[in-house]
């Protein structure tokens, strides 16, 4: 009765958030005294056996071309087959975009209780209880899963990836696959940029930048940190920056290791989208900006002077000056 981990891929590569899920799933298996197995749908270019170093012993690979396009309905049916064949009792997803679409479907299909957005390993001392964030990161809840099969969707960036030694046995899985009802007609991707919701470091700026023409220093800082760029709601509403950069209550919720907020006052709606970040740095010339209360580090000062200096100092540390 292994722990089964869904390994999400994009363009043939395993997503970083899935490596976290693999590490987490292997740890859950260890805790339960069982083994961890992975499942991959569609064709991949990555070496799946090498995923053994994250602690999985076996990988079920349903490589049919019909699974190359993500479809929650089709994927949930295939995953249910793999779960049944492997008699998995715990199924782990990353609570990334794919996980949010499939895990609830699989929960219904298997009548398995789902904890979405888990942030810690399950407590199995008395039942099966998993901690998750609620109220947009302002609190947490311990959720007791009452069903025989349990599904955990792990919050991205909540569990550190760990690679050791080992190789996984890759076995082909022959799935019954329904025809997808959703047709993918196109994909648009900002090439070369770090996806916001996957980024470990996010550099974000607000109205304090005074206009879109001043974003060069923000982008320079993001570049040396290999960070994604983000912005506050007024900035997106004013079309200074694209809407897909808006973080906050009504934009994207993110949880990077490091969030640098430049010229953002830190309204509660903004904090709701970023307060799960591990380390928050605030640069604002107003010492009364509410964001300082939620920050770990701060500089009260002019962004136009501070940010370029920061970029230079980081270059020195990274040895790229």
């Amino acid at each position: 009765m292994p722990v089964l981990i869904f390994i999400d891929t994009a363009e043939g590569h395993v997503k970083k958030s899935s490596l976290e899920a693999l590490t987490y799933g292997a740890k859950v298996a260890e805790q339960l005294g069982t083994t961890a197995e992975g499942v991959v749908l569609g064709s991949v270019t990555d070496d799946l056996a090498a995923l053994g170093k994250y602690g999985v012993k076996k990988i079920h690979h349903a490589a049919a071309d019909a699974l190359n396009h993500f479809d929650a309905q089709v994927f949930a049916k295939v995953l249910a087959q793999v779960a049944e064949a492997s008699s998995a009792k715990v199924i782990v997803f990353s609570n990334n975009l794919s996980g949010k679409a499939i895990a609830p479907r699989l929960s219904v299909r298997l009548k398995a209780g789902l904890v979405s957005g888990a942030v810690a390993l399950p407590d199995t001392s008395n039942g099966f209880v998993v901690k998750k964030n609620v109220f947009s990161g302002k609190a947490f809840a311990n959720i007791a899963v009452k069903t025989d099969i349990k599904i955990i969707a792990l919050s991205p960036n909540a569990y550190q990836t760990f690679a050791g030694e080992g190789s996984a046995e890759v076995v082909a899985f022959n799935a019954t696959i329904d025809a997808a009802k959703i047709k993918v007609t196109g994909v648009s991707k900002a090439s070369g940029e770090v996806p916001l919701t996957e980024a470990e470091v996010v550099v974000s700026a607000g109205r304090g930048m005074k206009g879109p023409e001043h974003w060069g220093i923000v982008e320079d800082l993001a570049k040396v940190l290999h960070a994604a760029t983000a912005c506050s709601r007024p900035v997106a509403d004013a079309h200074w920056r694209p809407h897909n950069e808006h973080v906050g209550q009504t934009g994207f919720a993110i949880a990077p290791n490091l969030y640098i907020a430049i010229g953002i006052s830190g309204a509660i709606q903004h904090l709701a989208g970023v307060n799960r970040s591990k380390v928050i740095v605030v640069i604002n010339k107003d010492p009364e900006a509410p964001f300082f209360k939620a920050a770990d580090y701060g500089i009260v000062g002019d962004a136009f002077e501070v940010v370029p200096k920061m970029t230079e100092a980081i270059k020195k540390i990274k040895g790229t000056a």
Partner: peptide, 26 residues
């Protein structure tokens, strides 16, 4: 129901912001 809330909690309060002078970005 498949799950239930065993309890809620609040995250530990932040230790407070560590301010650095704008003249000492390094």
């Amino acid at each position: 129901t498949l799950t239930s809330v065993a309890g809620f909690g609040l995250p530990p309060a932040k230790a407070g912001v560590k301010l650095v002078s704008p003249d000492n970005v390094e």
